[in-house]
Structures are given as structure tokens and as C-alpha cells.
Amino acid sequence: MPKTKEAEAGPAAPGDAGDLILPVDQQAASLKSKDLLGIEYLDADEIQLILDTAHHFKEISQRPIKKVPTLRGKSVINLFFEPSTRTRTSFEIAAKRLSADTQTISASTSSMVKGETLIDTARNIEAMYPDLLIIRHAFPGAAHMLARTCSAAVINAGDGAHEHPTQALLDALTIRDHKGSIEGLRVVICGDIAHSRVARSNIHCLRKLGATVVVAAPPTLMPCDVEALGVEAFDRLEPALEGADVVMTLRIQLERGGKLSFPSTREYFNLFGLSRDKLALAKDDVIVMHPGPMNRGVEIASDVADGPASVILEQVSNGLAVRMAVLYLLAGVGAAKKNVETAA
């Protein structure tokens, strides 16, 4: 579980931390945990804080000089034990725009191939005093392991089919940009719910922000007792789409192989591919999202992916802002923790 005790010490009291205090109108921005391991562990206020902060960060990427000195001298390590171009690049750029020093260690170049355990890798990296660790890993709970081992702030960039919190946050920011608020919206997530960390994080995030979440998948790709996550479940796409404000289609992981979940991509597209015809069942102002990378003609038709309802590229831009916000906020929590330790 995320550690919260240290962070609850709150803002530095006068007399601490170099005797500097904040002006009254600049409230301290606080996440409770030193780590971002999953949306499940955040409350709605924390999610809103991240989204609000991200909203202000968007503007930085549009300046002539796309860089602020905020995290100067902080070191951010990207630990990618699973291939990922988009998320890794997004975190790297986010860290660089905040002037942090970044280093990416990917599975192919790491000592993991030499048989080192995750805990030993974590201890070795910890010994180099990083401030923030970003981890992508194939197994659920890997980020939790790292967070327990390291005093640096840990950001989960995807742990197996468990969580991918920054994806859900960037999705929420994108929806908020278009719909104003998330409360009361009907959001449909369709596709491989069983193996999707994006689905899980989005379900938590959207529900905490007051949306109704609907999932649609063939029963072979729907996890057991999915209703326990607080969603409505459909085994056909069409009825799920009725009245939808937002439709998220998930990537079908063709590389997973196996012929037991659906017989062919052709049949999958016919039943669950988001086509214009199917999308017409949703609200007129529906927006279409996809976490990428897309399989055109499998889970989504090209004319939908590139059509007027698509906000897929905005998701990517917002990903940058959200990751900047998370890095900024967690760098603060980490410093708070260190202050508490020093004082103790």
C-alpha cells in the first residue's frame, strides 16, 4: 500500500525548510503518498489537484522556450522493463521540460537480463540517490515493490494488467477539456478489459470523479466479477454505446496470441470494432479516445480514429502535461518526506 504517514505531516512549518513559508494565497499542493502507484489509492481531491496542475502545465509546451527551471538538479530515472515508446518518451520529455535530469534504463540494457532481481536493481538505483523513479513492468505490484524498497518517489507507468495511473489522468484531463466536468458523464470502455491496466485505472479515476462507467467486451475478454469495480458490463457493444458521452476503445493485444479469446480480428472488428455506424448510437457530441498504439481496422475504424469525434492526439499532448504535473507534485512530497526524516 502507498505510504502516507510521512506526507501527512503537511506543509513545512515556519522555522523548517530554510525558514521559508508560503504566501497565504499559495496553498501547498499535496498528494498524500510519496508515490503514485495507482488511481485506486488516490481520492477525488488528489485527482483534481493533479488535473488542475496539469491544466496549467499545458501552456509550457506552447511557449517559445518549452522549459521551466522547476526540477533543476532533480534526477529522474525511467525503469522500463517492458517495451514502450509512447509512455517512456512522454515521461522523458515531461521531466526535461521541468529541467530534471533523466536517465532511461530499459529491459534490454539493464542487468535484469543477467538475472538480477527487481529488488536488487532497485537497491542499486537507490544507491545513486534518484529523486523520482518511473517504472513500467509486466507484472502487477512491481511498482509497489519498488516503492517499498526505495525512498525516492515511485511513479507506476504500468504494472501488468493492474494500473497505469498517468494514462487515466491524461484521459480524465482530455475529457474535462471537452466536457467541462466528468461528473454525470457516461463513459464506455470497450475491448480487452481483462488484460487492460488502462481500463482499471480509468474505471477508478472516472468513478471517483462521478462518471458512470460502462464496459463492453466479449465475455472471453471480460474479467471475473467486473461489476465489483463499480461498472455496468455489456457483452455486446451496441447497447453499451447508447447515450455515451465518451467512448474509449482499448488496444487488442495481437501479440498476446492465442485463439481462445476471439477467433479472428475480422470477427472482432465486426462485433466490437468502433465503426461510424456503431458510434452513431452514442450521443451527438461523443468523443472517441484510444490509449494507443492503435490497430486500425481491429478495435477502431480509421474513419473514426481520424474523424471529428476523435481526441486521440489531444490525449498524447495531455499526457505530457499530466506527467509534468505528477513529477512536480511528487517532487514536493518527496522533499516533505525528507524534511520530516531530517527533523526526526
Binding site: P11, A28, H56, G332, A335
Partner: peptide, 8 residues
């Protein structure tokens, strides 16, 4: 020196 970070 200050923590947590101020609201942006």
C-alpha cells in the same frame, strides 16, 4: 527547500 510544492 519548501514542501510540499505550492499550487501552480
Amino acid at each position: 527547500q519548501i514542501a510540499p510544492n505550492p499550487v501552480v
